[in-house]
Design a protein around this nucleic acid. Structure first.
Length: 842
DNA sequence: GCAAGGTC
């Protein structure tokens, strides 16, 4: 029997802490090793990894994209190397003296692989130690105790299935990405990527855009009448004309204009309608299933959160202990979730107390269940540990409330509706027309009472009886057109990816973000760029698999075969490599074609329009200082340029300027995004507008007689600046939006008039006051707050709070912090993470 | 500097 402590390895720190807590009965203490948390009690140690701590890649001699032919990557060796050095080092140190090891990573395929990676790291330093595997699908007392009482073995076949995926993804992704990037001469930051998941996702978006463009609208007409039970009563309602089509189905759209007009003539001349039938039905409306990641993102999406933002908030709420793990496919609550106990934790609270009480009054509580029951994690639900209102930001609170209320909904009663359908007729025997109205009344609100995000709107139709005469008080004849399909929104995209089986709960939202980062999509809902179309077209012609969902479907089958022991990793990856060989044979034959097409599309994405000076192309360029401007493609023969605003990244809109034919420009800058419009119009407006002098320049007024003036720049921005510019560059900013008015009031300190900003819409004018005082106040505010830590990607509100506790107040102090020392002070944060933040902040 | 999958 080996001596030494038992070492428990989990997939993440959070799980390690909770498992240690359960197994130790609360006595475990946290210690830090290499900046990694280790929980200790009795003869046990528990450490959390950070997902994969080793990664697959080609050896360094394959690193140079220019030196290595992409095709060579197909049969290149693949190495595994630590990617999280500090965690790997800590694990090795613990493993060396461990008497036994228990792998307690997540209960899914990737968890098995992560477990196997940990196993190999253990074996490197300790050949003898026995290694067990435990499996549980939620970190609760019962499940964890049960799992540790019945340890199992690692499933090496299942892990091999995951490894096969890693290899196939790397080989196809890297070889094709390098090929496309090289052929389009796009090396560096702007490389052109493809992959098994991003490919089909991008094709989905491009295909939809193709449908929209190919769409041929059709005219149709719809007819409506307002009916009233008794004249002057409040029993008025709208009814719509319908008829039975050739197949005997009810139809409302009239496709023939003459027929529509004839019907309308009858309708318009009718003064009464006779009720022909009344049908009343009671419908139950079942409460929704528990949240998996996709449905959570969708619900948060309807509150206005992007997929990325929703997940980031959920992550913070999870880390703080308020909600369960947010990455899950499961829509069935585990047996040991006791709804009453969880509801109990909300009683007496201001926001949720009343609803929790009313739910607890139900005789029996039977939570809803969705179709997916998985072993990974429970559905997303509140943990029962409640945040105070001031512990969370407004957004966090809104998302937290959504999760709480979704849980409430899943344990609430169904709603019942009364549907009332009335059919009435107008006209005589010859030209009789049918009108229908559908009313909806909520009889029992059920779950809607606790879940206001669902649609519970009623539509009124009064109580009428068969044979009753109704007055026709108004009629409407509406000419309409069929509409093209809508672009996918982010949550629809994620739902569709889930249906197609591409990506995972933890990656789908990242894939969408990647498409934005690569310049494939823009705006929200996302719209594909020319480059995206060219990439999809090239793939369709030469490497169809990489943009087809089939690749994932096939890989999924192969992985299952490996997991069952019916196929080997070697067989599957060898077959995949052969297919990629065939793809490259086709690409080699195409010569320069693919690259040319990609380059043309890249240029089209940047082309604003025709240069008015030389007839060449005006394109968006980036200056050496990193700012954007518009320049002529014929430079240096033509030196025409137009400035762009200094904030944001330019995006060309479809819309073009009527005067100049140039595309309008939108500046993307997160919440500060705005439409700049035609860059030439902006420049001309600035040239035409006289500077308006408002007072002496505080810098050079006395000495040189400089004066301050309200100026409009060719880039579209406005400022108060010195008339002696460029000899004097004194300036004060002015807001982009609204008209600047000069008031009669004068600032005594600076001798300048006070300014007011008035807006085109009716919103309150902004009394900006003296521009010098205003700017001074603005600067004071800025320096007080510093740059917000949360502006760094990866830092949420909870982490920001922890950093502040450790004395790091803003981005500047984060940048100057010493990573190892900071990691020691902040729970759950390693030095590598700090370095990543520092890099992001730069 | 490539992918996709974990996690932060």
């Amino acid at each position: 029997m080996s001596q030494g402590p038992e070492l428990i390895i989990t997939e993440k720190d959070n799980a390690a802490r909770r498992i240690a807590d359960i197994l130790s009965g609360g006595s475990a203490e946290a210690d830090r090793l290499n900046g990694v948390n280790v929980y200790k009690w009795g003869g046990k140690r528990c450490i959390g990894l950070s997902g994969h701590v080793v990664g697959v890649d080609f050896p360094p001699e394959y690193n140079d994209w220019r030196d290595v032919e992409p095709v060579e990557l197909i049969d290149a060796p693949i190495d595994k190397h630590p990617t999280q050095e500090n965690i790997v080092a800590a694990l090795r140190r613990l493993a060396r003296r461990a008497g036994s090891v228990v792998i307690a990573t997540d209960y899914d395929r990737e968890g098995e692989l992560i477990g196997k990676e940990a196993y190999e790291l253990v074996r490197e330093v300790n050949e003898e130690v026995p290694v067990d595997r435990v499996r549980f699908s939620s970190i609760t007392e019962n499940e964890v105790q049960e799992a540790f009482a019945n340890p199992d073995e690692l499933d090496f076949d299942l892990a091999a299935a995951g490894e096969a995926r890693q290899i196939v993804d790397l080989v196809w992704g890297a070889a094709l990405t390098r090929y496309l990037s090289l052929s389009a001469r796009q090396l560096g930051d702007d490389f052109i990527s493809v992959g098994r998941v991003q490919g089909p996702t991008l094709k989905l978006i491009v295909d939809r855009e193709r449908e929209i463009e190919a769409f041929d609208p059709e005219d149709y007409w719809e007819l409506f009448a307002d009916l009233e039970k008794d004249e002057g009563s409040d029993g008025a309602f709208e009814a719509q004309y319908f008829y039975l089509d050739e197949d005997g189905n009810e139809a409302e759209r009239v496709w023939d204009e003459a027929a529509a007009e004839a019907a309308y003539e009858t309708l318009e001349s009718a003064s009464t309608a006779t009720v022909e039938s009344v049908r009343r039905r009671t419908r139950t409306d079942d409460p929704p299933a528990p949240f998996n990641t996709t449905q959570f993102i969708r619900a948060a999406g309807s509150l206005g959160y992007s997929a990325q933002r929703a997940m980031s908030i959920a992550e913070d709420l999870y880390t703080a202990g308020y909600v369960t793990y947010p990455r899950t496919d499961n829509t069935v609550y585990p047996d040991d979730l006791d709804p009453r106990e969880l509801l109990d934790s909300f009683t007496g609270t201001r926001t949720f107390g009343d609803d929790a009480d009313s739910l607890l009054e139900q005789e029996s509580i039977e939570p809803t269940a969705g179709d997916e029951e998985t072993t990974d994690h429970p559905p997303i639900h509140p943990t029962g540990e409640l945040p105070g209102r001031s512990d969370l930001t407004e957004d966090e609170w809104e998302v937290y409330e959504l999760v709480v209320r979704r849980f409430f909904a899943t344990v609430a009663e169904p709603a019942t509706w009364e549907h009332l359908r009335v059919v009435a007729a107008v006209g005589g025997d010859e030209d009789e027309l049918s009108l229908k109205a559908n009313g909806k009344r909520l009889l029992e609100p059920g779950y809607h009472a606790v879940y206001p995000y669902s649609n519970a709107s009623e539509s009124f139709v009064p109580d009428v009886t068969e044979g009753e005469e109704l007055a026709v008080t108004d009629t409407a004849f509406e000419a309409k057109q069929t509409q093209p399909p809508r672009r996918y929104g982010q949550s629809r995209l994620i739902e569709t990816m889930e249906q197609m089986g591409i990506g995972t709960k933890a990656t789908r939202h990242d894939v969408i973000q990647k498409l934005y980062d690569r310049g494939y999509i823009e705006s929200d809902p996302p719209r594909p760029t020319r480059l995206a179309r060219a990439v999809v077209e090239a793939a369709e012609e030469f490497a169809d698999r990489i943009v087809s969902e089939e690749m994932t479907a096939q890989l999924e089958q192969d992985m299952q075969a490996i997991a069952r022991g019916e196929a080997s990793l070697e067989e599957v990856t060898a077959e995949s490599r052969e297919m990629l060989d065939a793809v490259f044979e086709g690409l080699m034959e195409s010569g320069e074609e693919v690259g040319k097409h990609l380059q043309e599309s890249l240029k089209a994405d940047k082309t604003v329009g025709e240069c008015p000076e030389c007839g060449g192309d005006l394109v968006i360029r980036k200056s050496r200082r990193g700012s954007y401007f518009i320049g002529c493609d014929s430079y240096p023969d033509c030196e025409n340029t137009l400035p762009l605003p200094s904030t944001g990244k330019p995006l060309l809109l479809e819309e073009t300027c009527e005067d100049h034919g140039l595309h309008h420009v939108k500046m993307l800058a997160g919440r500060k995004t705005f439409v700049h419009g035609c860059p030439l119009c902006k420049a001309e407006e600035a040239d035409e507008q006289e500077d308006l002098v408002i007072g002496p320049c505080p810098d050079c007024g006395e000495e040189h007689g400089g004066e301050l003036a309200i100026k409009r720049l060719r880039s579209g921005s406005r400022l108060v600046g010195c008339t002696r510019y460029p000899d004097c560059d004194y300036s004060l900013p002015l807001p982009r939006r609204g008209d600047v008015e000069v008031t009669d009031a004068t600032c005594e300190e600076h001798g300048l008039p006070e300014l007011r900003i008035v807006y085109e819409d009716d919103s309150e004018p902004w009394e900006l006051g003296c521009p010098i005082c205003n700017y001074r106040e603005y600067q004071a505010e800025q320096s007080e707050s510093g740059t917000d830590l949360e502006s760094v990607s990866g830092i949420g509100s909870k982490t920001a709070e922890k950093l502040k506790d450790a004395g790091v107040e803003d981005v500047d102090s984060l940048k100057s912090a010493e990573p190892d020392a900071l990691a020691e002070r902040v729970d759950g944060v390693g030095p590598d993470t700090v370095r990543k933040w520092q890099a992001d902040a730069d």
